[in-house]
Design a protein around this nucleic acid. Sequence first.
RNA 1: GCGGUCGUAGCUUAGCUGGUUAAAGCGCCGCCCUGUCACGGCGGAGACCGAGGGUUCAAGUCCCUUCGACCGCGCCA
Length: 446
Amino acid sequence: MNERTMIGKLGEKVGETISLSGWVDVRRDQGKLVFFDFRDVSGTVQGVVLPGDEALMTAAKEIRNEFVVRVEGIVNKRPEKNVQADKVNGDIELEIKGIEVLSAAQDLPFELGAEQNLDTFLDYLPYNLRSAKEVAIFKVQAEILKAYRAYLNSVGFTEFQAPKLIGDDAEGGAEVFEVPYFYGKTAHLATSPQFYKQIMVATYERVFCAGTVFRAEKHSTSRHLNEYTSLDAEMGFIQDHTDVMAVESALLIHIATHLKETCTAEFALLGSEIPVVPTVIPRMKLREAQELIFKETGKDKREEPDLEPEDERWLCEWSKKEHDSDFIFITHYPVSKRPMYTFEDPNDLGYTNGFDLLFRGVEITTGGQRRHNYENLVEGIKMKGLDPEKFSYYLQVFKYGMPPHGGWGMGLERLTQKFLGLSNVKEATLFPRDINRIDNRLSIED
RNA sequence: GCGGUCGUAGCUUAGCUGGUUAAAGCGCCGCCCUGUCACGGCGGAGACCGAGGGUUCAAGUCCCUUCGACCGCGCCA
């Protein structure tokens, strides 16, 4: 028996008898001839059953799309008139000598890659994930993650795993899922690795993690999930938040460059463009942004403590138009709008050394400088009406010497969504969870 | 949670101001086809129009309730 040859390698096997294994992408039965496109992870290739072998012909006619098969045959160069120049393996085809069905497929709900509503798409996600489009989306996501790790590793960051079960000392703000298991204390699912990455700064100075976080928000939008992957980083010995922004900018350039090297076919298939990351991403204070919006659109948001989604979209368009940048940093949100650990700008009291990074209309990152002085942090906690006692574990590291530091959190799914121009973040999430769906829809069947 | 839009064959949709057997494309099944490549041709099966109630001589089409979806908002990544 021949060893399995990957379809992507068939071009090197012209004239040889080989064996391939994969799925039937499509069958074209022409009566006396039956054509197939076979698919494995490395590509697709056409196979043909020629007349002559009755048993083989009968078997070929019974095979349907998505059957998993092992096929033996001869790799032939195609005659000139049959060459499909625009296709991978368009210049060869497999003359099938034997087919073994490894696994039959039941009636398909629809053709792979067929147009579907999001709801239908998610109902059939395990099946849909093998379509060319999904393969491309999650390849890009995997490469983003790879580039994220590679870059941060290259500039002195150490990766660590943050816990997902935490106590009742959540930072506040986001709604948390309760875990009623532990004696004497209610645990929660982590909404962020924030405290742990800060603790780890005193160990490795520069750290990052890429892990799942959980938000119990009952939101229903095209950019929210109850479970997502947070790309977090934290670095010590900074001057201020601009040092963090500089590292993040360089990181994004690295990711974009890496995608250009590894995913141009995927971007082409999805009809998306790899974004332009300028060496210096435009930046402005929240108040400057609001002033700009007022001046340009007449909408007065100058008293607002935050940007609305509409403003974020507008600012991104502005940044693209004025600076040819898909990104823009907004800094100096008021202390009242930021978490208790956010560092207040000593030169701009009441405002923080914090930033959001907006990308193609949405916020993909929140970051900033943190309070590193123990008394200052306790003061921040009290100011938010929280009890410092509850944070004593976290506070320990500040008690015993903590460098000035800062970092960011970035949503992997949002980043993927926006890189690829997908309309809903769930399309950029392998197995999205929301209040109505954990794999299957949770409501009663209609 | 609130607001908007929507819910018709396996999938994606069309059904105008309510009016006889609910339409199409794709898929599926059967037959035909020796060069197709999302093959093609002919034929066929398949929907009680999300569910419940109401108005009317008559409802997929109008009203109410309910379930569900998508989009937007608050909040956030």
